[in-house]
Amino acid sequence: MLFAAILPIMASAQNYNIGLSEQEKEEITNRVKQKIDAFLQQLQYVASKDYEVSNEAVKTTLALFIGQGGAYKLDGTWHNGVKMQTATLRKNRHGRPIYNKPVLMTRYLKNLQGLPYKRVTIEQVGAVRVDNLRRVGENRYETMAYFCQYFRGERDGGYYSDNTWKSVKVYVERIDVGGGMTWQIYLGDMKVQNITK
């Protein structure tokens, strides 16, 4: 299996006074990038045909997300769970790629487990962009990250591949851990920005 490489980060140059130092913003940006790396690495294992490895990877993947992929309440609003949008280069009746309706992440991972490919490769392409952080509560922030994911599924007689540009919500919270402060980062809903060959 191939693993995602560590790649440089593109961070926004805009400055917003949200009570964080530049060092803190950089630290958060690096941590966001690590979460996305981890997500793409785990997807490889989810797509594995080894049942035990795949199921364990589903649990690890869901732990990266707010609510661990299940229902959660945020700022007074209940959510059924983190949602994931997918797309395919197979054309619709207008000759354009198909952008599917978002589904729950739990459903997306189950679909990934059931793909009819003997071998799946999922890699990050290019740098990750992280938008400005926005303060949403006491010691809580939200931002967006953007990355490009290469997917290749091989089976006897052929393969399917695409590059999907994705945007993901990111939730950041500063928490107290045994006398010190650290950043807790969770990923959120994912949307397809674009899909190309």
């Binding site: 593109m10 926004s12 805009q14 290019g126 938008d131 540009w165 945007s167 190309t196």
Partner: peptide, 24 residues
């Protein structure tokens, strides 16, 4: 290449504003 197109693309409104303002 997909990664160069990705970098050149205006991926978010945040990035749109930054380019509009000359900050990116």
């Amino acid at each position: 290449p997909a990664d160069l197109s990705f970098q050149a693309s205006v991926k978010s409104i945040d990035e749109f504003m930054a380019r509009f303002n000359g900050q990116e």
